[in-house]
Write a protein that binds this DNA or RNA. Sequence first.
RNA 1: GGGCGUGUAGCAUAGCCUGGAUAAUGCACCGGCCUCCUAAGCCGGGGACCGCGGGUUCGAAUCCUGCCGCGCCCGCCA
Length: 589
Amino acid sequence: MVRIKELINQLKPIFSNAMNSLDVPESIWLPLLGKATVEDHGDVALPCHSLAGILKKAPQEIAKQISELVASDLQSIAIVSSMSGFVNITAKPEWLSNRICILLADPRLGVSVDQKKTFVVDYSAPNVAKEMHVGHLRSTVIGDTIVRMLEFKGHNVIRENHVGDWGTPFGMLIEHLLDLGEDRAADELGVGDLDSFYKQARSKFVSDEEFANRSRSRVVLLQGGDAETLRLWRILVNESMRYFNEVYSMLGVMLTDDDIRGESSYQELLPEVVDRLRESGDLEQSDGADVVFPGGWVNREGEPLPMIIRKADGGYNYSTSDLACIIDRVERLGCDGFLYVVGTPQKQHFEMVFQVAKKAGFMSHNHQAVHVNFGSVLDTDGKVLKSREGEVIKLHDLLEEAIWRAEQSIDDKNPDLLGKEREEVARAVGIGAVKYADLSTERTKDYVFDWEKMLSFEGNTAPYLQYAYARISSIFRKWGGDRQSLTTSFESLMDSEFSNLRDEEILLSRRLVEFPSILDDSVSTFSPHKLCKHLHSIASSFASFYENCGILKEDIEAVSQRRLALCEVTSRELKLGLEMMGINVPERM
RNA sequence: GGGCGUGUAGCAUAGCCUGGAUAAUGCACCGGCCUCCUAAGCCGGGGACCGCGGGUUCGAAUCCUGCCGCGCCCGCCA
């Protein structure tokens, strides 16, 4: 439940007086004061049913009594009424306009700056020589949005892209590269045909003993730091990165080569993890491997589940690099929080890693380690979409298709858009739709990959929000006035009559005023969908306002100015909100 | 077997942590609206025993519990 902070803050002292006179302690009534569950009933409500036992009166009576007690003090802020045991508080147009005024004057649109912390956000993480699939899309898009939100809230954010560039598969990949010839292999990877490259290597590894043996020896050479092997490995990494960067650039995410922290870069830190765990007394031996028992988990046989730190063959494990990362982040980067934008299937893994890291003293309770998990992408038959089998949907193709469809839409709906502008709008609309489709659902749930839905431009989609923005831009172009001046002209309207306000203006205002509270909630829970939902409600009430209230064609100058000010705030909130998701807002579409 | 998660109109989702009023939104469906600031839109309408059964409560989609369906994890892979 999100409350409008500013309104609650003003209501609190007034209710405090009333409740004191009834002898109801703050600890009881304050938590009850929340957002009205039915928008028509008001902005804030206080259900009184639970007070019946204390006050020995019917809830309806209590609500009535409280509303009478607060009525006079609330006069300048809100209208209060009681109904079936609820005290309902509806902010007055004067109060709403006051807030709108503050938003207009504030470049941050009323969003506060938090006490600065340093966050590491770990996201995207594609694998070298493997196609990026829809799962990477989720991680990349959600991670990027969280980064932008945290930065806007004033935090220092370090992006980390843990590219899978190390491990046993690289033996076979390098051997396959040699078989193909370096040039041809580079070509294949460069055009983004990663999946077939990987599959070819894989199938040879399974079917061809000689190839498999070469691959195994190649792994040893790689881990031993053999110069020629490293050079070949570098080709694989570079060509893949070139392709990933192309996808990133299409998507419009912030990741660059500077953010890459390949798994290979943690190799030197791994022995230290073992040493430290030995020192802290957590390390145990099991069948020749170094392990830690986090406790609380059992395997299929009911035995305690170990976390393997170093395998019997001396190799390290995934958990080991995650622990190394934590040490690096705490000691070198000095960060306060680390977020892992990784799928839900790895939930248990992260719980174990965090527990071990705390126990061994790699991080303290002051550190906030969060697995920002997201659900699996399912196929239409309800099965997990796998890149290994069947038709893989290449991210690159999906994005191109999205842009192409947007172009068709533009040609259909606005044939006047031509050339470069047409291209840019198509990009913003197409890519925006794909990103928004992913961001607008609650991230922890599995979702069915629906090509059509992802490319839809109707309903609760990015294009709907962009359309609202473009309409407002169009109004301002036509108006031709100075948008900055709206702030002062709106202030001067504050003393005038509010009786001619239409319902659509009031509803839009209420939603615009909620924006800072919603954004805060969205950031603190790492849930972009909450912001999406609110942006849609803003755009939707704007559309209704736009259809029903004349803006430039309104005869009364003061009313026209007031409506232009609402357009201004709407436009800026939509723009800021979409910018948080890295979605562009065209001036025309 | 153990653990985690999930089930809301035909479909897709929000609400669940922190219980409150007539369960919200989009698609699809039905009926209206472009000589008028962009119809990617607006206005109106139908459609849900919130998986099923118990419990707690003045009050349960929300909390507890037992079933049922589905998914995932339990690798010396990452």
